Simulated assay, not measured.
Amino acid sequence: MRHTILALSLLAATQPAQAEEVNLYSYRQPELLAPLTDAFTKKTGIEVNVAYLSDGMVERLQAEGDRSPADLVFTVDVARLAAIVDAGVTQPVTSDLLQSNVPAQYHDPEGNWWGLTTRARIVYASKDRVDPSEVTTYEDLADPKWRGRLCTRSGTHPYNVALAAAHLYHHGADETRTWLEGLKANLARKPQGNDRAQVKAIWSGECDIALGNTYYMGQMLADDEQKEWADAVNVLFPVFEGGGTHENISGVAMTKAAPNRDNALKMMEFLTTPEAQEIYAHANYEYPIAPGSQADELVRGWGSFDADPVNLMELADHRAEALRLIEDVDFDG
């Protein structure tokens, strides 16, 4: 027996040590994540394996169950984060570093997901045809003065559902229905395209104002063809009456299976540091949320705003009713 134990000990001593690693499922593009994962590996020596998914993350995690190799999920939009939590495939985590780096409104109160960077849902406005002082609140976008002057993508797109959920949170169902009817009456054309298409429509004269996310401005300004569209508009930051400018978020959650839990927590903590958030925010023209961090110089040049202080999980709870109201008024019809 002693010889067997000795032989096993010698065999173990000759085997290469298993590499430290963490496995990540992500909806984000490789070019956005690579700078982050490279920085984390350089700092910790932990290798990051990323599976880039176009859809079906929840279904995949449910099918894999306790055998899932995924430690973390990385995605955008609070609805997706909430859906992952609701599916029961995450676990709550917290630490002093997470708590200090992520303000309360930007993480799940139970610790199931933690925010990283934000994007504001703003108004693109024609530099030639709209005085910036005319756009102050989201509520005002339903005013008849904008009749035939507003463009937007589909009302049922997650970005617009989230905005309607925020209106619902602040004003209730009756006022939100009226607001949606006002927005629909002000449309210059049937909802269509993506956020960049709305800027192009302003540039071409089809409409004067449009709803969109901030980061698309950075992407358009970096594109030879689309820069001309972007140069035709101002970025304006409306607020909700009694609230602030609506934001959505990118975030990270630890899976219930998490075979490399300790490494996963190290990566979560790293992702919330000012260093990591600035890397990620600069790559995608978003806003870091860690105290002491700064947005890219271009993004700062669009101006400052006061974010709506509501916890984003509360908005997620209103999304189903918001979608029902959007469909009830036949917004896209």
Rank of each mutant, 00 (worst) to 15 (best):
L11E: 10
A257C: 05
L325A: 06
S133V: 02
W302R: 01
V130A: 03
Q198N: 04
A17E: 11
E21A: 14
G88N: 07
N248K: 08
I122D: 00
A281L: 01
N186K: 01
P69T: 06
N194W: 02
F237V: 01
V93E: 04
K227L: 08
E175W: 07
T44R: 06
P69N: 09
K256H: 08
C207P: 03
T4Y: 15
E278K: 01
E225H: 07
D71P: 08
S126T: 06
E134M: 12
Q99N: 11
F237H: 00
D306R: 13
H157A: 13
A79I: 11
H170Y: 14
G242F: 05
V93W: 00
V102H: 00
G111A: 07
D231L: 10
M267Y: 05
N160H: 14
S54R: 10
E275M: 10
V50F: 08
A281P: 00
T118S: 04
M268Q: 02
R324C: 10
A232T: 07
M254H: 05
A7R: 14
P274G: 05
L11V: 08
D231M: 05
L81W: 05
A276F: 05
D296I: 01
L265F: 02
G251R: 00
Q29S: 14
L6F: 12
P309R: 11
E225P: 08
L53T: 14
Y287G: 00
A12E: 11
H318W: 06
G333C: 11
K190D: 04
E247K: 05
A316G: 03
A164L: 10
Q62S: 13
L315A: 09
N213I: 08
T37E: 09
L97V: 15
Q18W: 11
V310N: 00
P158L: 10
E21S: 12
L323T: 09
A201P: 00
G244C: 11
S304T: 13
Q219R: 13
L10A: 10
L33D: 05
S54A: 15
P259T: 05
Y215D: 12
F237A: 00
L11R: 12
K256A: 06
A83G: 06
N284D: 13
